[in-house]
């Protein structure tokens, strides 16, 4: 999976979660940039990504994520 593939997958997951097809994630997107992306749907997002890709983020990873790009980088590493 390329970084763009991962980003596209994230976009699709978040669109499905929030029922909002206008969402387009970029590597510099932060949670506060997306309407309704509250802490509850953030956990749902992390869980959905983990289940979709059969990976598991560590608690330290999740705490350090600032931007969507951070999650992409970690995802790429876990997929290797």
């Amino acid at each position: 999976m390329t970084d763009q593939d991962i980003l596209d997958l994230f976009t699709r997951i978040l669109r499905d979660l929030l029922t909002n097809d206008a969402i387009v994630l970029r590597t510099d997107t932060e949670r506060s940039d997306v309407p309704d992306w509250d802490s509850f749907s953030y956990v749902n997002f992390i869980v959905a990504v983990e289940m979709e890709l059969s990976i598991k983020f560590g608690v330290a990873d999740v705490e350090s994520f600032k931007t969507v790009g951070d999650i992409v980088v970690k995802t790429r590493a876990l997929l290797k």
Binding site: I13, D16, L17, T19, N44, V47, A48, M51, E52
Partner: peptide
């Protein structure tokens, strides 16, 4: 249904 699909169906139900 998967985790995400369940939420999607629920969102549809809510609407």
């Amino acid at each position: 249904l998967g985790f995400l699909e369940t939420i999607q169906l629920d969102n549809a139900l809510k609407k």
